[in-house]
Structures are given as structure tokens and as C-alpha cells.
């Protein structure tokens, strides 16, 4: 009886946490399948997207990868890098303007920055396409138009991320620096920038993953270029080569590693300081 009531109480206490963990597990099932499929030998029948036989071949022989896949990955990485650099710089500047400066049109700027995050991608993608066609670039869709589009949708996320970090910053710190003989430039580089940097790095990582993963906007504005998500989408119609899962798994492992290393470094530093 006693153990029963105790069990009931325990369940009552942990029910919500348990349900939450179940939800998390649910979100990981498809990832597990991506990992699993990266070890699938599909050489017998390409047209069935189904686990057939375990193999390391997909990982070990990039030379046998489907035509164009590696190119699409490289293109996606290249675009994501360029878009990240541009969006991070422009977005960080804008975030400083929004938090630190009062100017006419600040409200309007705020709305323009918020809107891309709240617009359906299909509408943004088709608008851009309409613009490019109207401006006479309809025949030159490709790397540049993809890059323009990616910077456009990454920008808002950068502004929001850096803004959050910047507005959480105590302005007394900058005043203290100036009080302690730091000029405006020294104050910025010695105090403001190092303190905002984690926000900027976070924004850059977010931009990279948004750009690398984008499909809907890219698909409308890519012309003849094929990015990795477009390759996967196209392959779906012909039969998906298992190698795409190698890329998916590798991406996941790299991203998780970056996050974990960052977290570990933070914890280690904290521990060392506390000792």
C-alpha cells in the first residue's frame, strides 16, 4: 500500500517531465533514421527508401557518391559561408543601431526586421523571383540571387540575436571603462565587443544553418544551380541515394560537437574559477 502511494506520488511528480522527455525522443526519431540510413546498402534497389543491409560503404567511398551531390554540398557550404559573413556584419551593425541609437524611422526599421521572420517563405521567394525577373535578371538566376536571398532572411535572425545580447548588457560597464581612461574606441574593443561576441557567434552559427538548410526560397531563385537541399528534393523523385544521409549525419555530428565543446569549455572555466 505504502509503496503504491509512493509510486503514485512519484509518477505525479515526474509525469510532466516524463512526457516532455517523450516529446524530445519523438523529435529525435527521424534523426536516428538519418543516421541509420547513412549505413544502408541500397545498391540492390535504388528506388526503395528503406533499410536493406548494413554497410560502411557510404561513408568510406565518397568517390562512388551520386553525381552532383558533392558539388551541391560544396555550393551550399560556400553560399552559407558568404551569407553568414554578410548577414552577420550587417545584422550586428543594425543591432547596435537599434539598441544604442535613437533615430527617426527606428520603429519602421524594427517592423522591417521583424517581418521576414513572420512571412511565409513561399511568398518571400516568389516576391524575390518577381523582382529579379522584373529587373531583367530572370535569365541570370544562380549563385548571386541565392546569396542575396539568403542574406535577406538571415539578417533578421542576426539582428534579433545580437540585439538580445546587447540590450542585456549593463551600460554601466561602458561608463566604467570610460571612467577608467578608455577612449570610445578602447571601450568598444575592450569591453563592449568581447561581451557581445557570444551573441554574434551564436547569430553566425544560426545564419549558417538557416542558409545551408534553406529550400523553398532557394528553389525559386536558383536558376541552374543545385544546392544540397535541392539535390535531396530532386533525388526524391528519382530514388534517394543513401549518401545524402552521410552528409546529414556528418552535419549533425559537427553541429552537436560545436555546441558540446562550447558548453564544456564554459563549464570547465566555471569550475576552474570556482576552485
Amino acid at each position: 500500500m505504502n509503496t503504491l502511494t509512493r509510486a503514485k506520488r512519484w509518477i505525479g511528480k515526474h509525469l510532466i517531465l516524463g512526457l516532455g522527455i517523450l516529446v524530445l525522443i519523438y523529435t529525435f526519431v527521424p534523426i536516428a533514421i538519418v543516421v541509420l540510413m547513412s549505413f544502408n546498402d541500397s545498391s540492390k534497389s535504388r528506388n526503395v527508401y528503406k533499410f536493406q543491409q548494413f554497410t560502411f560503404d557510404n561513408w568510406l567511398h565518397p568517390g562512388r557518391w551520386a553525381d552532383g551531390m558533392l558539388d551541391s554540398v560544396m555550393l551550399s557550404i560556400y553560399i552559407a559561408l558568404c551569407a553568414t559573413v554578410i548577414a552577420t556584419i550587417l545584422g550586428t551593425l543594425a543591432a547596435f543601431a537599434m539598441v544604442r541609437h535613437r533615430f527617426v524611422g527606428r520603429k519602421a526599421a524594427n517592423i522591417i526586421i521583424f517581418l521576414p521572420m513572420a512571412s511565409p517563405e513561399i511568398v518571400m521567394g516568389s516576391s524575390l523571383l518577381a523582382l529579379f525577373v522584373a529587373a531583367g535578371f530572370g535569365g541570370q538566376l544562380g549563385f548571386w540571387t541565392i546569396l542575396i536571398a539568403h542574406v535577406m532572411f538571415c539578417l533578421s535572425f542576426v539582428v534579433v540575436t545580437v540585439k538580445a545580447r546587447l540590450s542585456g548588457l549593463d551600460d554601466n560597464l561602458e561608463q566604467a571603462a570610460m571612467d577608467l581612461y578608455a577612449t570610445e574606441a578602447q571601450t568598444f574593443w575592450r569591453v563592449t565587443f568581447p561581451l557581445v561576441l557570444p551573441g554574434i557567434v551564436g547569430a553566425a552559427l544560426l545564419s549558417f544553418s538557416l542558409s545551408f538548410d534553406d529550400f523553398i526560397i532557394t528553389n525559386l531563385n536558383s536558376g541552374q544551380e543545385v544546392t544540397f537541399p535541392m539535390f535531396v528534393y530532386g533525388a526524391n523523385q528519382r530514388g534517394v541515394p543513401m549518401e545524402v544521409n552521410v552528409i546529414g549525419t556528418a552535419m549533425f555530428v559537427i553541429a552537436i560537437t560545436i555546441v558540446l565543446v562550447g558548453e564544456l569549455a564554459r563549464r570547465r572555466q566555471e569550475k576552474a574559477l570556482a576552485a
Binding site: 523529435t27 529525435f28 527521424p30 534523426i31 538519418v34 544553418s209 545551408f212 538548410d213 529550400f215 544540397f228 537541399p229 535531396v232 528534393y233 526524391n236 545524402v244 552528409i247 546529414g248 549525419t249 552535419m251 549533425f252 553541429a255 552537436i256
Partner: peptide, 8 residues
């Protein structure tokens, strides 16, 4: 974390 693999 799911964002870390491709949406597609």
C-alpha cells in the same frame, strides 16, 4: 538539435 540536420 533537429535543426542541425537537414529539414528535407
Amino acid at each position: 538539435a533537429p535543426f542541425f540536420t537537414s529539414f528535407l
